[in-house]
Amino acid sequence: MSLRLPVRHPERLRIDTSLAIVNIVLLLIFFFLVAGQETRTPQDLRLAQTSQIAPSALPSPILEIRSTTDWLLDGQPVSPDLLPAALSGSDDILHLMIDKDAEASLLISALGHPELASREVRLVTLRAGPGQ
């Protein structure tokens, strides 16, 4: 007695995607477990504060922005329109200082200035001393 088994045709094979679906579901579960955890902020967190110090103690050139028209370059008032002429003799690094309570739009509009586009801009923050 011979046993005849059906012949398998390679074109009839179907790929089983259940393992891939299970992997994706497990990855999503792990992602939502990690992303859903509440993070705690440290209790001793202190934000940096801006204080008044002499311009000679700051890196040069430093551009201090107080408002849309009140700009200081190395302690000297400068108009935003005259900034290219004032920065013509300096290197490619410009230090930028702005008050932490200033609106974000003030910083964004200052960084959009054409003269600052070709320079490396470094934000400068000043830590207030212990009695301030």
Rank of each mutant, 00 (worst) to 15 (best):
S79M: 05
L106N: 08
A35W: 08
Q37C: 12
D92H: 03
E64P: 02
A110H: 05
R12Y: 03
L63C: 01
V78G: 02
F32T: 15
D92W: 01
L107I: 08
L123Q: 03
I62M: 06
M97E: 06
A85G: 09
E103W: 11
T69L: 09
L126H: 08
L28W: 08
E103G: 12
M1K: 13
L83V: 07
L82W: 04
E64K: 01
P84G: 04
F31A: 15
D81R: 01
L72G: 09
A104D: 11
A48S: 13
E120I: 11
L27F: 15
S18M: 12
D44T: 12
R119D: 02
G89E: 15
P80R: 04
D101A: 15
Q43N: 13
I65N: 07
L111V: 01
L107P: 01
T39V: 15
E115F: 04
I29E: 12
S118V: 13
R12G: 02
I15G: 05
L87I: 05
W71K: 07
R12P: 01
T125S: 10
D44F: 05
S51P: 06
I21K: 02
L3F: 08
A128T: 06
S118Q: 14
P61R: 02
P55G: 04
A57H: 11
L3K: 10
R8G: 00
V78M: 03
L72F: 07
I98W: 05
